[in-house]
Amino acid sequence: MSRRLASTCIKLIFYLKYKNAVPRSNTKIEPKLLPGDLAIWLFIFMELLVFGIFFMVYAVMRIQNIEQFNYYQLTLNRELGAANTLLLITSSYFIVKAVHAVKANNIKNCIYWLYAALAGGLGFLILKTWEYIDKFSAGISLSTNTFYMFYLSLTIFHFMHVILGMLILFAIVIKAKGGAYSAENYIGVETGASYWHMVDLVWIILFPLVYIMR
């Protein structure tokens, strides 16, 4: 008898205590998936690791050659470097628009934005080539001095990544024209987009480091 009384009292206490309690929604917000293919992200992380080490080695090597780095940095064409930064940021923005277009099932617009991004990439390559012709015709090469060795190897390495990025984007244009993408299937577009943004992200560090910082 007393046990039943005790359990009734406990239930009563719990009821009084929790009767106004609002059940907390335990729906845990699931994190968003990485945009695009996981493989491209592993590739992006490796590329960022290589570029990151490259940047840090440049900064450390500069400590031992400050006069040389400061002197020859002034021979670089800052205008072309800045113009290339604006081009890459703009084409990266066009890529964002392309991804939004395919998500909205507007494939025609997606292709237009991809072409616009490719034009930005092409502009980057043209300005860069112009810069290299100027340097190489002045007799500058990888073996001229430590600064030029870093300048040429870093920017040529990035140059090749721009070319690879453009090849990826061009392949996506061809597939998009073939009807491969839609609002239900756009992972391929996101994959190419992620890689292109990585190329832009690297240049965001490279330009001030090599062309401006002193």
């Binding site: 968003k32 945009p35 960022l48 940047f55 840090m56 560090i205 910082m213």
Partner: peptide, 30 residues
């Protein structure tokens, strides 16, 4: 641009970690 807002924490830590590490090392050496 990469739209990593809201993705799993590990991926954001990798990306922002790279950005901050590179910038901090460059700042230190300069």
């Amino acid at each position: 641009f990469m739209e990593l807002k809201g993705v799993a924490l590990i991926w954001r830590v990798i990306m922002y970690g790279w950005l901050w590490t590179v910038c901090l090392v460059i700042a230190t050496t300069y």
